[in-house]
């Protein structure tokens, strides 16, 4: 029967082993994987400006990006492909709440420059290699 000491060794040994593996994998991900997958070389000052605004306005408090955030408003990973820069800018610069189907977005009234930054950020996001996410709806063509 397992003794208390053996149980302690199981806990310490397992934790140490898996922590090391996790840290080694994380180092690879942070130094090589993410920079390559996100095309870090395309991260211009404009993209970073958009990223700051994304953070400051807590956009993921309603939307998801790369599937992360809240489920109140649409997923924005591929929004650049879906709407294009002009419609995006119009929504971001609107002084009255943009409200498709009645669900309101905060009327941010961004300046042209800020709106451009956010569009550039979302364009950059859309180009990240996300291992196949978001997937094409597999049953779409089955609908008549």
């Amino acid at each position: 029967m397992l003794s208390k000491k053996q149980a302690l060794l199981f806990f310490l040994g397992g934790t140490l082993l898996f922590s090391i593996i996790f840290i080694v994998m994380s180092i690879d991900t942070v130094t090589k994987g993410i920079p390559a997958h996100t095309h870090e070389e395309n991260m211009t000052a404009e993209v970073i400006h958009g990223r700051v605004l994304w953070d400051e306005n807590n956009c993921m408090g309603c939307h998801t990006l790369m599937g992360e955030g809240a489920y109140y408003a649409p997923e924005l990973t591929k929004v650049y492909d879906r709407l294009g820069p002009d419609a995006m800018k119009a929504i971001l610069m609107s002084k009255v709440p943009w409200a498709p189907h009645g669900r309101k977005m905060v009327a941010y009234g961004f300046s042209e420059n800020d709106a451009k930054g956010i569009v550039a950020f979302l364009k950059w996001i859309g180009e990240i290699d996300l291992n196949g996410y978001p997937a094409d709806p597999p049953l779409k063509n089955r609908l008549k």
Binding site: F18, I21, G132
Partner: peptide, 17 residues
């Protein structure tokens, strides 16, 4: 610890996750 990987599937990290 390694289960953290389920948050890294589709967020710009390598596919080994």
């Amino acid at each position: 610890i390694l289960g953290t990987g389920h948050h890294y599937y589709y967020t710009g990290a390598p596919s080994y996750w």
